[in-house]
Each structure stands twice: as structure tokens, then as C-alpha cells.
Simulated scan of single mutants.
Amino acid sequence: MPSRKKTTMFASAFCTCVSSFVLICVVLATQQWVSSDVLFSRTNTSITISLDYGLFRGTCEQFVEAGLQVSKQTFQVADSLSSTNTRSTNVAIIVILVLSLLTSLLSSGFTCTNAVSNPYQTFLGPIGVYTWNSICGILVLMAMILFPVNVETHGLSEELARGCSTSLQSHIRSQHSYGYSYWIMLLVLFLNIASLIIIYFYDHARYSKKKEQERPIENAPKDVILF
């Protein structure tokens, strides 16, 4: 049976891994990734398209310069994308997040296994936890980088806005504000780092204790040497 200290520390890491798994599910399920106001010119007037969307769906509203507001529409992101860059990047982000979800689940399983058993010398031990947590963190970081690239560089909001209205002419400017669905990924990164730190401190303490037990007897304190 594992020691109480080992059980406590791996149980703590298990909680952070499960929290990471739940938050990635929230990131995929919610659509508050970004809010954009995209201004276009149209014959004799200008029109602003206000969008709120995520990886799968979103809503848009039209505001004409004169103050006229068109009713809110719901759209599917995949159906509104025609550019190869925006479509492929959006699919890549979804795949990356699904992979991070799987690695987070594996990390949760490994920490749970370590909390109730003693697989010290196998990949099921701390090495496995390090591996899956690191992969999960890297994948989430990639998703955090790719999404702004798709919005800012590939013009994702502008492309979605054109699908919400007809007769739009030249694009004038865009303003973007990233929502809680996007920033939750930052919390996922912190949770993965916390898991790694917990396991590192446990592994380091165990290594130090092992080295202490292996000291030559001549280095031991004289008052504990028995003849």
C-alpha cells in the first residue's frame, strides 16, 4: 500500500487533472470565444456586423449607420467558412483540444493509479504523469496560439461577417475581444503546471529520502552507530 504522503500528493494531482479535464470540456462546449465588431462599407452607408462565436457556432447582428438593427442570426462556423486557411485552422484547433482532452483523461488515470498503488519503476509512475501533463499543456498552448492567429491573421471574423449579410463591400476595420471560453484555457495551463509541481516535489522528496538511506555508515552520526 502507498504511504499516506504519497496518497495525499497524488490525490491532489488527481484533483487538478480532473479539473483540467472538466475545463477542456467547458472550452469545447461553450461558444464565448471571441466577440467581434466588423465594420464594412455599403452603398451610401456603412454597416457593422457584431459577432459572438466559438469553434462550432455563433450569432451575428447587423447595425446600419442610420441606427437600424437587424434581428440576431445564428450560424454554424463550419458552414460559413470558404477559405482553406480559416477552415483548416479551425479544424486543427478542435482536433488539438480533443487530443488534450484525452491526455488529460490519461493523466487523471495515472495519478489515480499512483494514489492507490505503488508503480514506482514503471511508466505508470511519476514519469507517466509528467509525460501526459506536459503533452496536455503543450496542446492547450497551441490552441491558444492558433485561435488568435485565425482571427487576426486569417480574417476569421471578417469571413463569418460576410456570411451574415449580403451586399457588403470593402472591409474598414475590426475590433476583437476574447471571451471566457478562450481564457479558460489559461486556467487549464495553470492546472497542468500545478500537477507537475506536486508530482515533482513528491518525486524529489522520495529521491532525497532514498539517498539518505543509502549513505555509507561512516557518514552517519556517531551517536546512532551501534556496536
Rank of each mutant, 00 (worst) to 15 (best):
T111R: 01
S20D: 02
K222E: 13
T43G: 06
V91D: 12
S167W: 06
Q73T: 15
F123M: 10
W132A: 12
V151M: 07
A92V: 15
S181A: 09
K5M: 15
F201I: 10
L102N: 03
K211W: 05
E159I: 03
Y180K: 09
L139A: 11
L106R: 12
G125M: 05
R87P: 02
A205P: 02
S107A: 13
D203E: 10
D37F: 05
P148V: 03
P216T: 09
E61V: 11
E158L: 03
T48R: 12
G125L: 04
S71D: 13
T45F: 07
Y130P: 00
L160C: 01
E212G: 10
S167D: 14
I93G: 00
A92Q: 14
V70F: 08
F14V: 09
T103E: 03
F56Y: 13
T111C: 10
T122N: 13
A13T: 03
T84F: 14
A29E: 09
T111I: 06
A115S: 13
S174V: 12
V149A: 10
C60N: 02
S36G: 05
R215S: 10
T122A: 14
G179Y: 03
S195P: 13
P126C: 06
Q175R: 02
V18Q: 06
T59W: 01
I135L: 15
V129Q: 01
L146F: 08
L39D: 07
M1N: 14
Q169W: 11
Q62K: 14
Y120S: 14
Q32S: 15
L99E: 00
T7C: 08
S165N: 14
V77M: 01
Y53V: 05
L156N: 03
N192G: 15
L55D: 01
T84G: 08
T59S: 04
N118S: 14
R87M: 09
S170K: 00
S181Y: 01
E212K: 10
L146G: 04
Q73R: 15
T131D: 01
L105E: 05
P126S: 11
E61C: 13
S107V: 08
S181I: 04
C15K: 09
L139G: 09
